[in-house]
């Protein structure tokens, strides 16, 4: 009899414990799902509203309609004036040119930007090459008979020049 009572008590204790655990898990789950569901909802409702606003605020539909009307291209002729090209990346810095058009032709090309801000980052690496010497380059005033150098035809130069020419057309 005592054995039956003991076993019944143990089973009951298990059942109570199991029910308690289930309730606790359930309550935890509820709390968790409440936390999760409560935070995304305001964000989810905010984003569409914001994107809808920005789509309406900055009218992208106006840009394509403006471009065709603004470029009634004048049969390849460039208008006289001064035009500045966009800055183009030349690996080691930017190149930006300004052109002058007179008589429908380029009369002058000027460099507004070229990579020259190098004073701060001069690294002399004498350890790796002990027999080689180094110096920071500096413009020379002395007169010369001939100049050795590569001709200006880099991609960056052409890109900046092209954008300046495009402006001269419109």
């Amino acid at each position: 009899m005592k054995k039956i009572l003991l076993s019944v008590f143990t089973i009951a204790a298990f059942v109570v414990y199991a029910i308690h655990q289930k309730n606790e898990e359930a309550s935890v789950k509820v709390v968790a799902s409440q936390n999760l569901s409560s935070s995304p909802t305001p964000v989810a409702t905010d984003t569409p509203a914001q994107s809808a606003q920005s789509a309406g605020g900055v009218p992208p539909t106006d840009i394509p309609t403006e471009i065709p009307t603004a470029t009634p291209v004048q049969s390849g002729m460039y208008k006289n004036g001064t035009y500045t090209g966009s800055a183009a990346d030349a690996f080691y810095g930017n190149i930006q040119v300004q052109i002058q058009i007179s008589g429908g032709k380029i009369s002058e090309v000027q460099f507004l930007q070229y990579p020259s801000d190098r004073g701060t980052s001069v690294e002399i690496n004498s350890q790796a090459m002990p027999y080689l010497k180094q110096e920071a380059i500096q413009a020379q005033k002395a007169q010369v008979d001939i100049v050795s150098g590569a001709t200006q035809s880099s991609l960056a130069f052409r890109q900046s020049l092209q954008s300046a020419l495009d402006k001269a057309k419109s």
């Binding site: 810095g93 460099f111 070229y114 990579p115 020259s116 380059i137 500096q138 413009a139 020379q140 002395a142 007169q143 010369v144 008979d145 001939i146 100049v147 050795s148 150098g149 590569a150 200006q152």
Partner: peptide, 23 residues
């Protein structure tokens, strides 16, 4: 050269074609 001296050859500044950085 014209002056009877050695030829003076400048190395163009690769960052600015109007400059010579070495003679």
């Amino acid at each position: 050269n014209q002056k009877g001296e050695k030829w003076r050859v400048g190395i163009r500044n690769p960052f600015n074609k109007k400059e010579v950085i070495k003679v």
